[in-house]
Computed example of a mutant assay.
Amino acid sequence: MTSRPHTSRGDYLAAAEEERNAGHPALASLLAEEATYRANTPAENARVSSDFPGGLRQED
């Protein structure tokens, strides 16, 4: 069985930036939103949410 490499918070943010620059803001927002679920601080989560508005996830 082959394991997949770990996708880091930085990987998601880099991909979000690439998608935003490519004109895909919805996908960029989803990638950035996924980044906020990686280990980080509440302040950093707020910054990411501000930089990439429009996430669709709702808290349970």
Rank of each mutant, 00 (worst) to 15 (best):
Y12D: 01
E17I: 02
E59L: 13
A22K: 12
N40A: 10
R4N: 12
R38I: 02
R38K: 06
T2P: 09
E33Q: 09
Y37T: 12
R4G: 06
F52W: 06
D60T: 12
P5A: 13
G10S: 11
A28T: 05
S8V: 06
L31T: 13
G55M: 06
T7E: 05
L27R: 15
T2W: 04
A14K: 15
H24Q: 10
D11I: 08
T7A: 10
A26I: 10
E17M: 01
S50C: 05
A14N: 12
S50I: 03
A14S: 15
E33H: 07
E19Y: 03
Y37Q: 08
F52Y: 15
R57G: 10
F52E: 11
E44A: 15
E59V: 12
P5Q: 13
E34N: 11
E18N: 04
A46C: 01
A32L: 04
N21I: 12
F52L: 07
G10T: 08
G54P: 09
R47M: 04
E59S: 12
P25Y: 04
E17Y: 05
D11P: 09
E44P: 04
P25D: 13
F52R: 02
N40D: 12
H6A: 09
A28V: 06
P42C: 00
S49Q: 15
A16H: 03
A46R: 05
V48I: 15
A26Q: 08
H6D: 14
A39K: 00
S29R: 00
R57L: 15
T2I: 13
Q58V: 14
L30Q: 13
H24P: 04
A14Y: 03
A43C: 03
S49R: 15
D51E: 13
R4K: 10
G54M: 05
N21A: 15
A14T: 08
A16T: 07
Y37I: 04
T7H: 06
L27P: 00
A26V: 14
L31G: 00
R20E: 15
T7W: 09
A15R: 05
L13Y: 10
A28F: 02
Y37G: 10
A15K: 07
A22I: 03
S3M: 04
L31A: 05
L27M: 11
S3L: 06
A39P: 08
A15P: 02
A16L: 06
N45A: 09
L31N: 07
H6F: 11
S8M: 01
P25E: 14
L27I: 15
